[in-house]
Structure formats: structure tokens, C-alpha cells
Design a protein around this nucleic acid. Sequence first.
DNA 1: AAAAAATAGGCTATTTTAAGGCTACTATGG
DNA 2: CCATAGTAGCCTTAAAATAGCCTATTTTTT
Lengths: 110, 110
Amino acid sequence: MDFYSMTDQAIATELGQRIRSLRLRRNITQQQLATATALSLNVIKSLETGRGKLSSLVAVLRELGALQELGNCIPEATVSPLQLARRQGRQRQRASGQHRPPHSPDDDEW
Amino acid sequence: MDFYSMTDQAIATELGQRIRSLRLRRNITQQQLATATALSLNVIKSLETGRGKLSSLVAVLRELGALQELGNCIPEATVSPLQLARRQGRQRQRASGQHRPPHSPDDDEW
DNA sequence: AAAAAATAGGCTATTTTAAGGCTACTATGG
DNA sequence: CCATAGTAGCCTTAAAATAGCCTATTTTTT
């Protein structure tokens, strides 16, 4: 499955179908999943068609026993020893490096 | 990281921080990421604190080059040969198996 | 076949998110 | 230390998600 050739919506739809497959493998109804997650039936339907909130996804994946996989998919950014050396033990807190020199009247840009 | 011992919100927050780490590893600003994903700056901020829509997550992960990992985290439900045999080649389309027999006056449940 | 259960889709009200702008705070580079 | 860029936070308006309910369709069971 090549996600990079798919639109965002197509990917979301695909994820929804996978959620549905996970649910059906457990043979539970949308209503049962809704009750178990304390979400409404509508939310389960929406998720299975690729719409909804991130927090809803988390709740559903927990109930379907797929939380660990979710954790693996967005890796913890481990700081390499090299980077540590470069920045005296602190990791970057803001993006940077695009400073332009302060503007002086000598610069005749027009 | 034991997700199952965390609340949904805590997990979403953790995912947000990982997204931030991915962004900072690329050394791009929230504004640059917003522009690249055609989302607003506010959405990027929200995602990094664990709120937002599934479609926003997909767009951001694409830009950060983590789409493939997302695909891996919600596995495609492959049908086992055993299941195929059980259901004459069709896979289950609805959850079921919890039918109760039609109520008859003989049943004296109270 | 009929009956029942599961799901899709619509509708309204409420809550949350998205967009855009603005200010305050703070890390970063010079 | 100073100037500036990056980020957090709040505000308003618009869009989308959610909850709850109801009806129609389709699958599954009997």
C-alpha cells in the first residue's frame, strides 16, 4: 500500500476500513464499540469512513487492542549522541537557522 | 512507553510531542509546516498539543515523511484460510452471533 | 421464506476544531 | 546584551464533529 501516492482523504478512508476490519475480527457491533469507548454510534460510523477526531481514534484503537501499534507509528525522536555534542546536551526547542541579517540603511533594496 | 496505562488525552498529547520532535528534527517552523500542508498555524499548534482531526494528522505526517509508519500502525486485516473455509469464501461484513431467540410467552424470565 | 439484528443516512442541537489576526513571552543568533 | 524569529495563548467567525433520535436498507439467523 503506497500511501504517498494517495490523497489525505483516501488515506483516512483506508484507515477507517482497517478499523472496521479490526472490529469485525473481534465480531463486535458498532454499538458495542460505541458503548465500550463511551463514544456515540455516530462517531464509530464516522471513523470507519475516515472522519473524526484524533482522540476518538485513540479511544477506538485502545478498545480494539491496537494502541501499541499506534505508538510505534510515530516514533519517539531519540537524540543521537552526535546531536548532543553539538548542542551542549540540550536538544532544539525551536526551529531556526533562517535569520536574516538586521536591516541597515546601507542596504539599497527597492 | 505503556500506552495502555495512559488516558486517551495523555496519549494524544504524547503523539503531539512526537510530531513536534519530528518537525524539529527537520528544523522547520510551525508556520512552514502549516504552509506546506495547507493548514493553518493554529492547527499545527493544536496537533502538537494532542488535539485536532484525523485528516490533519495525515497531512502533517505526510509532510514529515512518516506516512508509511502510520500505515503500519493499523494493520490490514488479512483473512486467515481457516476463516475463509468457515464462511464459503466471504468474509464477515457485519458483527453477529449475539442473537437471542425470539421471545415466546413460555419464557418466564422476570 | 420471515424476523431480527447491523448498518447507512438524515436531522437538529451542542461542542470542538479550523482559520485568521493580534499580543506576550522566550529561545536563538549576532 | 540586543534584535529578531518562533511559539503560546486568546479572540472571533465559520466549518466540522459529536450526541441523540428516527427511518431505510442489507445481512444474518431461524
